[in-house]
Amino acid sequence: MLDIFATDPEAKAQREEREAKADAARRPEWAFQFRSGKRNGNQPVSLREWRITTPRHDTAKALRELFGGTISEAPNGDYALDTELDRIEVIVDASKIESKLILWADGHPIHECDGSKFLSPEEDKGKPCDCPKLLDERKEKAKQRRGPKPNIVVPVRIPQDEDLGTGKYTATAWSFAEDFPYVMSQLKAIEGEALCALRLDYIEWEKNGKMQSFVKPVMTVIGSYQDAISQDPEPDA
């Protein structure tokens, strides 16, 4: 058998280290994804009702049975279920939520931090990231694509059909990130998994005689999932 590392153990160790990092960076396979927006050509469009994408047609059909809506093909080849719901209940495990700030370039993260320290690459991990201290300045740099923006990955399961597996919602809105510490404090006060609601709130106001609007993704904590199960009435025999 070919062994190109037989005479160079240092090169072998370097290769194994790269493989370990690659394994750690690989994302899990998600059964489905909640989406609060889509693309119309090259233009991003915010949605007022949830879109759920999945690589499996049977999962899309099962989700349609639960939530209604229409199934179409997403740009990446997945199936997309466009619901008519702006609120859907999900099961959330706080210990599995990942939150960071990321600046992307050509599909790769070039800056990952927790707001004050680098999270990657390994040689910079723990060092100050030099992001602005003020929130408005962070937002402005992100808007100019010179600074990172929120990337909060919330793994979720569907309480009506847990056999569908684990999906996720990835929040990138600053409004979601601003609420996140308070939501996490509520989640951590619950023992075990929580029953939560993912909402899309349509916000409208008048400015200089013209109506302005945006859609705000929100996650609210309803309570303990185990408590919710125990309170469900037993089905008739």
Rank of each mutant, 00 (worst) to 15 (best):
P9L: 00
P9F: 04
A11D: 15
K12F: 13
K12R: 11
A13S: 11
A13I: 10
Q14S: 12
Q14Y: 05
R15H: 06
E17I: 08
R18C: 09
E19L: 15
E19P: 12
R27F: 01
R27T: 12
W30T: 10
F32V: 05
Q33N: 03
R35K: 15
R35N: 08
R35A: 11
G37L: 03
R39L: 12
N40P: 06
G41Y: 07
G41W: 00
N42L: 11
N42W: 12
N42K: 12
Q43S: 15
Q43A: 13
V45A: 06
R48F: 13
R48G: 14
E49R: 10
W50E: 02
R51F: 09
T53E: 08
P55A: 08
P55L: 08
R56E: 11
D58G: 08
T59A: 12
A60I: 04
K61H: 10
K61V: 10
A62M: 02
A62R: 14
A62H: 11
R64S: 12
L66G: 03
L66P: 04
F67T: 06
G69H: 05
G69T: 04
T70C: 09
T70M: 14
I71S: 07
I71M: 04
S72E: 13
E73I: 15
A74H: 14
P75G: 09
N76G: 10
G77C: 03
G77R: 06
D78A: 12
D78V: 04
D78Y: 10
Y79F: 13
D82K: 06
L85S: 12
L85M: 13
L85A: 06
R87L: 14
I88L: 07
I88D: 06
V92T: 10
V92M: 06
D93Q: 08
A94Q: 15
S95K: 06
K96I: 08
I97C: 03
E98W: 09
S99I: 02
S99W: 01
K100F: 01
I102V: 14
L103Q: 09
A105D: 13
D106G: 15
D106K: 15
G107W: 02
H108A: 14
P109V: 04
I110L: 01
I110M: 00
H111F: 10
H111I: 08
E112P: 10
D114M: 00
G115V: 01
L119Q: 01
S120K: 00
P121Y: 01
E122Y: 01
E122N: 08
E123W: 01
E123C: 09
D124A: 03
D124L: 04
K125W: 07
G126P: 00
K127N: 13
P128L: 00
C129Q: 00
C129W: 03
D130C: 06
D130V: 02
D130L: 07
C131W: 01
P132S: 08
K133R: 02
K133T: 12
L135F: 09
L135Q: 10
D136I: 02
